[in-house]
Amino acid sequence: MSFKCIIFNTCVKYNDSSLFVNDNVADTADRGLQFPDLCYKHLTSFVFSHNTIKKYWLLMASLESIGRFILQITASLRDTIYFALLVITRIFQLSSYNSATRTVLVNQIYFTSVQIIPAFLTASIIFGSLFIGIVFHALKGLGLSDYLGNVLMGLIVTEISPLFTVLLLTLRSASAINAEIAVMKVNNELHSLEAFRIDVINYLLLPRIINGMVSMVLLYSLFSIVLLISGIVFSGVIFGMSMDAYTNILLNSANFYDIVLTLVKCALFGFFITLIPIRFGLRTSDELTSIPVAVSSGMVNVFAAIIIIEVLLLITKII
């Protein structure tokens, strides 16, 4: 063991490079000459009236902004897919898991699922009962009692329940994750982890993403079970249906493939409602003011992702 004391004259300013932020497009656009400037350079050799040049400039500027927007979207999408693939690869690597990862995972599931259970069950019972009551009443009014099972399984269990769950989780956990990662980035805490050779993806991101998938499936299952139990009550009250008849209707309407597809959808929702906020959290700059911007952008993108997944899976179902 040795002990040394080194005194130096100048303080080293550490290179503040980021592992994750990849705003190539914006950087490229900022570094190079702007297209309207180029236009001016080339056009000054010709004799053009001021108005003509102005019109050209406006046209080119508009085209450039459209192009930049498309490039930004494409780059963002590409980075997200790349990041998603990286995370998926890590999920299936045993070396990604250790005691620290497991602790974070347990904590995340605790905060996301266990802590939310009382509120979630209350909301499920109130919302689920009301919704199922309204649907049953409407079916009876329309004389479509025969389609009770189809509506219950095809609409409520496979469509409404995942949507309700994902919205609840997004509002509660995805926003928290987004803010948490953004704050860590601003506070240089990610650098600390890197300095101690802790893989940020393995330690911070993987448990959160797995937690998103697990919590989503767990909470969806609980919500569906609550809904189906509400259904027993309402089918008895509104249709005067026995529990056996209700179970039989459910069994007739239940499709194994649809249920498995819904569970996959929940896992996908869980994956993206944590991955996207993490990505936007990591894109935060070193300023505190960038945190709300990152959170709001992340949330908007999460909702877009939810809609895209929902639409894609509906198309899959229809096909």
């Binding site: 620290a100 602790t103 948490e180 704050v183 805490e189 300095a195 101690f196």
Partner: peptide, 19 residues
């Protein structure tokens, strides 16, 4: 290289051993 703000003190230290 600050400590992780959303973790308790012991977890900040234990993290290295665990990881």
């Amino acid at each position: 290289f600050p400590l992780i703000s959303n973790q308790e003190t012991w977890m900040n230290i234990a993290l290295i051993k665990q990881y």
